[in-house]
Design a binder for these strands. Sequence first.
DNA 1: CTGAAAGCGCTTACAG
DNA 2: CTGAAAGCGCTTACAG
Lengths: 337, 337
Amino acid sequence: MTVTIKDVAREANVSVATVSRALNGQHNVAEAVRRRVQVVAERLRYIPHHAARSLSSRRTRTIGVVLPEVHGEFFSELMFGIDQVAREHGLHLLVSSYHGDPREQGDALRSMRGRVDGLLVMSPYDDVDGHLADALAMLPNAVLISSHLSLPGKCRIGIDNHAGARAMVAHLVALGHERIAFVSGPQGNHEAEERLRGYRDGLAELLPRSAPWVLQGDFHEGSGERAVQSLLAGPSLPDAVFAANDMMALGCLSAFSAAGLTVPVDIALAGFDDIPLARHVPPGLTTMRVDIAALGADAMRRLLAPVGDGQSDDGLRQPQLVVRASTGMARVSPDSS
Amino acid sequence: MTVTIKDVAREANVSVATVSRALNGQHNVAEAVRRRVQVVAERLRYIPHHAARSLSSRRTRTIGVVLPEVHGEFFSELMFGIDQVAREHGLHLLVSSYHGDPREQGDALRSMRGRVDGLLVMSPYDDVDGHLADALAMLPNAVLISSHLSLPGKCRIGIDNHAGARAMVAHLVALGHERIAFVSGPQGNHEAEERLRGYRDGLAELLPRSAPWVLQGDFHEGSGERAVQSLLAGPSLPDAVFAANDMMALGCLSAFSAAGLTVPVDIALAGFDDIPLARHVPPGLTTMRVDIAALGADAMRRLLAPVGDGQSDDGLRQPQLVVRASTGMARVSPDSS
DNA sequence: CTGAAAGCGCTTACAG
DNA sequence: CTGAAAGCGCTTACAG
């Protein structure tokens, strides 16, 4: 039914070895023969069978991408950056998400065996039972994104969440806010915990008299809405709400709006990540820019870089403060002499 | 280096055939033997080599997904729906985007040969040179999403964009708007053209004295912003802006806000798709709900359904009007006797 | 219930 | 420059 390399060889009066060499651009083929083979292959609409090729060549030209989930703008941006570099190199992407479940993550990783030449793994969760380390040990080269773990021989790439959260607190304090509530990310998520730690440290340093005010969230929009609803049900509102990511900040915004509160007039709001919508949603969300697409692209380039090329440089990327209208203007105008 | 089925066979004192059968859950294996094999496989951390398996079994347990792009909430939602069904069936996803370029689309499809058991192809663009039809002819079963083409033996699934756009015009007219501008999607995109046609037809029918007012867009946020900027530069504003998708509507919203105009007080705004953010962005975007995730999930289920099971039922899904605050209240209150 | 063997469709030393 | 042959790691009739 489907045409194989044998059919091409027969039609072109050469051996299958020659067909393989001709089509793969090897140099030890007479140009006339190569042309003939190409013409025949074209006419027969021959497409090499991938599994056969990768079984014998031990290469798949595919990179596996294992993510906590595929939902939302953050992952969309990350995939975008990864995809860019992949297509520059003619590589395919095998995508798998594990829904925050460590066991599923292990399965996802294991099932990549023999399917990929390399792996990009985003794993912000604690590797409590060592599933991740185990699975990774027997897989080809991998780059870890936003991971807690440092695995021997594996390169890691991430962002400085602690410094970022601290910088945002500093920004809010500089605007004169004193009661700053924080909507956290999910527990056990290393990025979420670093952001929380940055918030606490920033507060302790800059507003030592102000106690931390933390509302539990989970990085999804809905938890931002619920956090605001619980604030509205309380005795008083904070001056500012700092959400541990933009998705939750959007949820907060929506809940404020539903309650008739205007950001930033009635309350200031800040997020983290700078997803594309942060700039598009009125009034414009102040946030810490991570450049998610660049993070994905860099991870991919790292994976493709020759081994030994400064592999496990663990340098964290510094997020940048992006001030938009949602944090408003200074409440207490500073001495501007 | 890596452990293969031979190693397991040797350690377990059985043939490779028996290992294969034991691990694949075939019934013709003594339970004691199966257990022994499983224990050895576990101890050796054996993982079957995918390429080898799929070469001999002619199955890959992988579904190829070919999309115009991977960027943005629409695709994120679509992938989410597809991923759900894929994991229910233990299938992997090989994702490829072609950036709206028909030639790249052909390449993407071709390179799926021998890698996938089935294909989900979203192809809203015209297949001018037949690349799509060609490539699809030699591939395993496929489901086309939102495609113009009806290919023999291929199932198609899509939404009724014409009816949806018409319904939105009807909604805007019912609210008393008379000058309704439309921000279109990219040319050559079948979905965009159907929505435009729905707008024109709705207008011709319901507001016969009102000429169409079309601004060219491309389905991205930026083109929504630019459309509004060009409106602001013109002599007068419409009563309402209907963007051919939500992303552009968000761009419009942002541009209105930047210009100091409030939606819906100063101008009404509507989109199409109902991406998750449509409900979360203040003031809440009126839109046509497509249920994108369900579209992806259904396409996947269709692909997995037994052949002949009503395969090329071309029934279009009807989008639902979702009224939120962005279209505001009726300008001219109707006779409410 | 189990094993020996053929075969899946390629690539790649090895000869020539 | 070209071909015959081995081999990649599995699965699956075919015998027994």
